[in-house]
Design a protein around this nucleic acid. Sequence first.
DNA 1: ACCGTACCATCCAGACTGGACTATTGCAAG
DNA 2: CTTGCAATAGTCCAGTCTGGATGGTACGGT
Lengths: 169, 169
Amino acid sequence: MQGVRLTPTSYIVLGLLSWVAEATPYDLKRMVAGSVGNLWSVQHAQLYTEPERLAKAGYLTEDRERGGRRRRRYAITERGRAALREWISMPTDDFTELRDPGLLQLFFGADPAELASTQLHVHEEKLREYEEVRARGSSDAPAGPRLALEAGIGHEREWIRFWRRLAKG
Amino acid sequence: MQGVRLTPTSYIVLGLLSWVAEATPYDLKRMVAGSVGNLWSVQHAQLYTEPERLAKAGYLTEDRERGGRRRRRYAITERGRAALREWISMPTDDFTELRDPGLLQLFFGADPAELASTQLHVHEEKLREYEEVRARGSSDAPAGPRLALEAGIGHEREWIRFWRRLAKG
DNA sequence: ACCGTACCATCCAGACTGGACTATTGCAAG
DNA sequence: CTTGCAATAGTCCAGTCTGGATGGTACGGT
């Protein structure tokens, strides 16, 4: 019931469960894809182990179907909500972690123009995807995801500026 | 001698060792800090285990001091250089992985203005650091690290624009 | 001779990764 | 209706990585 370390992954699970009455790991997986998954990648296997861990510590309740798929349904507890609230109210000064394989190749001497043409494609595609999500979003959607999406769009544009500059020598 | 998977971390070790005749894990640690460590975080413990793994697979040679600190000195082999060259010449289309704790808090409903003031500090500091590195750099430095630094500076500026916008409502 | 401060190496439990593997269910064509 | 495919859903595992603790070595200064 006590003493687990809460990681960013934990807060993703708690955060998503604070928006819905209950969810199975598979539901979480779909919620993550196309939203928070863009700013913090989560392995699907974690969405099975992490809720289990959180349930053991009292942040969630677990309820398992008998027969059939034997889905586990999780719901957030008051203790879980409190932990989430507390985390949200303490602005972090932890730093952005960036992992960009293309940039790594550039660092170690890859041909800038050639690399740029590959990377440009990838980032243009991603930008298109984000802009589509934005277009679909209703105006009464929660502010958080909308703002995070704006951040993502801004960064994709920056990537595109950067690689475009390299592409033309 | 065979069959290890080469990860980005592997290429960081190979890449750094391609620039110097030999290095101990501790040397690698210092080389990473303030350069490639900014675009791909590496735990120091990995700089002990990864070269060992690479040496076993024939990409590096290992030579251990007797007595004293018993430092291990690693040097890249022709096989290692070949692997590095091959990786560099194949532009990756793997995608940027971004992990930003602040953005995650924003996503889940943190107060934008409050969060922004914390994050602004952090990113302004980082930008200052990058610009200092750039100022110190000689003009005959290799192009790769210089370009990667430019990317980092561009992104820090983007973060600052983003959080600045949120800070003033 | 002693101390403080870098320098340097190793270890560990727990968490995460990437993917393989299995099973269930819905649906559509034959 | 039954067969087969796609989508849905859950589990497992070996290998890696994480974050930090721990403990040793070297060296200048007093």
